[in-house]
């Protein structure tokens, strides 16, 4: 039966140890172990590229142990190879939070976010210019990361990171690279509000300023204008759209 054949292949490829019963059912122990290697090597490769710094930081053995454990849960649920590292990261980061240095989870989260930014969906086309009385339109490949460690910087060789709470906006630049830009807490909350896209710029500025107990005075307006100009220049902000009816 094809169903039995298919399930045996699945167990051979992703099981922690292929069973002799499955290999016997499929008919050639040696050749089905070739398939196990082909499947796992391809996935290991893309995961290793996406999380290269994390792998280097925790060592190949620890890294591979998490990957193998994830394989044994059944393998990727995504048809897109580019999303495989994200599925592994979702599984492995909670493990590394328990077992590795405290900054490793931040590093893995930063790397996987940068990977997703590079390969994220196309940008929307705004219907209008950016304006305070319109809802902002942002690039699709923009995320805000709140980190306990400054893992966007390269550490000294062999060293880790000291705690230093850091907020980053990661975005895809014109050369398709994922670029980190530091944000203060108010700017990060503004960007989150703009990503949500359900308020006009004016409404979101008033709400976020109030939440931060910040007066909207000349200094604030000047800094906000600088921030908006920078976001527009970097391609983080694309334009505006009318408020929903």
């Amino acid at each position: 039966m094809l169903a039995d054949h298919a399930k045996a292949i699945h167990r051979v490829c992703f099981g922690s140890e292929p069973s002799e019963a499955d290999l016997e059912l499929l008919g050639s122990r040696e050749r089905w172990l070739v398939y196990r290697d082909l499947v796992r090597n391809r996935l290991n490769h893309v995961i290793g590229v996406a999380l290269a710094r994390t792998k280097n930081a925790i060592g190949e053995e620890v890294f591979q142990r998490a990957v193998d454990e994830w394989f044994s849960t059944g393998g990727p649920t995504t048809r897109y190879l580019r999303y495989v590292p994200s599925e592994l990261a979702e599984f492995a980061i909670p493990i590394w939070q328990r077992t590795e240095a405290p900054w490793v989870a931040d590093l893995a989260g930063y790397e996987i976010t940068a990977w997703e930014i590079r390969y994220g969906p196309p940008n929307p086309t705004p219907s209008h210019e950016f304006a305070f009385d319109r809802r902002p339109v942002l690039a699709t490949a923009v995320k805000v990361l709140r980190l306990a460690y400054p893992v966007h910087n390269e550490p000294a060789p062999g060293a880790g990171y000291e705690p230093d709470p850091t907020i980053l906006c990661l975005y895809r630049d014109k050369n398709h690279k994922a670029i980190p830009r530091k944000l203060n807490p108010l700017a990060a909350d503004l960007l989150d509000a703009w990503r949500a896209g359900d308020q006009t710029v004016a409404e979101s500025v008033q709400q976020v300023a109030a939440a931060h107990k910040t007066q909207i005075g000349p200094d604030f307006i000047e800094k906000l204008s600088t921030l908006i100009a920078d976001f527009l220049n970097r391609g983080i902000l694309l334009g505006g759209q009318d408020p929903p009816p």
Binding site: L2, C13, R42, P76, R79
Partner: peptide, 25 residues
Amino acid sequence: CLGGVDDRFFHDLLPLPFTEEAAAI
């Protein structure tokens, strides 16, 4: 070929058995 089982993807091309059942499916 067989590309996945139970909504899990191999990301590789695994062979089908060359049977009437597999041909029908």
